[in-house]
Design a protein around this nucleic acid. Sequence first.
DNA 1: GTCTATACGGCGATAGAC
DNA 2: GTCTATCGCCGTATAGAC
Lengths: 194, 194
Amino acid sequence: MAPRHGVGSRSSATLAAILRATERLLLDEGYAAVTYRGVATRAGVTPGLVQYYFPGLDELFIAVLRRGTDRAIQALDRAGGAEQPLRALWSYANDKAGSALLLEFMALANHRKAIAPVVGEGGERVRKALLDTVTRTWHRYRLDDPELTPAALVFVLSAVPRMIHLEQAFGAHTGHAEAVALVERFLDRVEPRS
Amino acid sequence: MAPRHGVGSRSSATLAAILRATERLLLDEGYAAVTYRGVATRAGVTPGLVQYYFPGLDELFIAVLRRGTDRAIQALDRAGGAEQPLRALWSYANDKAGSALLLEFMALANHRKAIAPVVGEGGERVRKALLDTVTRTWHRYRLDDPELTPAALVFVLSAVPRMIHLEQAFGAHTGHAEAVALVERFLDRVEPRS
DNA sequence: GTCTATACGGCGATAGAC
DNA sequence: GTCTATCGCCGTATAGAC
């Protein structure tokens, strides 16, 4: 008997092709280009079939978002988050494609109310995973500023590279190199390369 | 004789109503809700008239963007940028509506190629105005870290509140209060309230 | 110069055919 | 499980009223 696929199992090759096509479309042309026809063309299926798996575009966006969040968490685990959490975080937030996807989902969340809570949950899940790891190794660091808490550091180390990538996408650059140098000098001091 | 208006002078009441309606629509429902029909309804004119002034939606977006950038520069000048540039910058980047508009324009820039360079120019114009002011007063601050340059500081002070507002829009909050406390303690130290 | 009316193809969503 | 037909809204183009 052939393996069971279908909408319930969420494991068919068709489904995977649709999710891949949607993510590529998001990165290449932005969320406004994600249409049933466009996704279907890129995935090699008919528009009606895409709509069969995802009755509304919101469901499609949410499926791509959840898959991306799961992958980010797994990638962080593999990236040695336990040994050098600050560098793992810095490297994670420096991902260009990740920043571009985040922008699309933030914009989507702003005017599709079904998307907003899912973006929030995904973001908080990643942030808290990072925060847990950094808190666990916090005793290693010799920091003189009592206001520099794990939460503040995790936030700034996430926000700076994210904003740099967003700005680079439209050609801005003022202060980028200097901000990166500032953070990397900090990392060299508190979490030297092994 | 009645005052001269018209598309060349860009000063008619109709034009102002269209730009106001577009900005409100961007904030309330995101750029995907900016349609000729929607703008026209909010501005109290016909869709064809909006299209007369702005033959494509790109031109409409660009007009709103330029107006917003001009106003931001003027607001910064009025906000005592010369006396306390770091606090003026911090207050400027903490503007909630400004962050929401920026998000919409960044997302637009990502998949409407005519918009990207205009977003870039506007962002760089503001950033460089801030950088000039901070550089001019840089000698006042007693900073021990040689990597903490005016450009790095301006970037971080812009990026942190911007990202906080973006994340708040979809319900994330982890690290926000701590990051704000960190920055405000820094400001109290290097640029005490007058 | 300012503004209105209308037509066209593409879109998301829905119902239902096969 | 797969796909088609249809509906109302969209951006855009155009023709013309005042």
